[in-house]
Amino acid sequence: MEVKQFEIYSDKNVLKGKHYGANVATKKDKIILMCHGFAGTQDLFLPKYAEKFSLAGFDVITFDYNGFGESEGEIEIVPENQMRDISNVALYLRKNEEFRDKRLYLWGTSLGGLYVLKLASILENISGVYAQITFSNGLRNNTSLLNFEEKEKYLNQLENIKYKEVVENKKLLLPLKKLLSDSQSKIFLEKYKEEFFTLLSTRLSLSTVRDINQLSIDLHLEKIQVPVLLLKANNDIVNLPQEMDFIYKSLKCDKKLLEYDCGHYDVYEDEVFLLSITEQIKWFSK
């Protein structure tokens, strides 16, 4: 398997990515564009998927959003900007001589799953979408387990933080372990703290949570016309499995839902990874 580096520009910054070449013996003239999730990089989890897809005959593209990994820019999660990064990579693939005659599929995990679903309702020349452990409505996902008073307190805190940014031009920056404070995320961060030290020491504005709360693709889902494969982790406490159910029920296109009794991060490892990657390869091969 040959892995080539490539660069494009997105929002005037150099965005860096990798092309995992398709196995010549099983080549399918299809490209899978992989989009990682919240604060991730293309070297976290994605290579193991890319290698399996490449071996099965797919060209695979991974990349780092602006400000993350090897790409230039400010370390900041602005959903609209990150979706624009994906759109720019997709444009590059549609126009580049090496890729333009191949069918393009979007692949997204966690927050990246929401991104690719929304883009599938907007972009042309997309042949299919895979989205796992994601959500459709940020506010619903992040507050559905709170009672009325807890929800009001939570929203008021985020509003006050944003207000301080507006009047004082100061951002409250917190490390990932503060932003991802649920029990499943704590285990994940502890497990990979040495391997991805730079990533896990990243500090992000707490107002990022407010921006994600404002994300919703509820009205975009029924507009998707290409086939969609979804994966739900039944014990996910980061992005609730109810959100995956909502997405599946709202889609009017050809669709399929994979379910596994595991937590959010378990989908990337061991048995669940092996089971799901097998299903993904079958689906993309159709």
Rank of each mutant, 00 (worst) to 15 (best):
Q5E: 15
F6H: 05
S10I: 05
N13D: 14
V14C: 05
V24S: 09
K27L: 09
K28R: 13
K30W: 11
H36Y: 11
H36E: 01
L46Q: 05
K48M: 08
E51P: 08
K52F: 06
A56T: 00
F58H: 02
F63G: 00
F68A: 00
F68T: 00
G69T: 03
G69Q: 00
N81E: 13
R84Q: 09
N88D: 01
N88Y: 03
N88V: 09
N96A: 01
T109W: 10
E124W: 03
N125T: 09
N125Y: 04
V129C: 14
A131Q: 04
T134P: 02
S136M: 14
N142H: 12
E149G: 04
Q157Y: 12
L158S: 06
V167T: 05
E168F: 12
N169E: 11
K170R: 09
K171C: 03
L173Y: 03
P175I: 01
L176I: 07
K178M: 09
S183W: 12
Y192S: 09
K193G: 03
S201D: 11
T202D: 07
L204T: 06
L206R: 15
S207A: 05
R210L: 15
S216G: 00
H220W: 14
P227G: 14
N235D: 12
I237K: 06
F284C: 05
S285L: 08
K286G: 11
K286F: 13
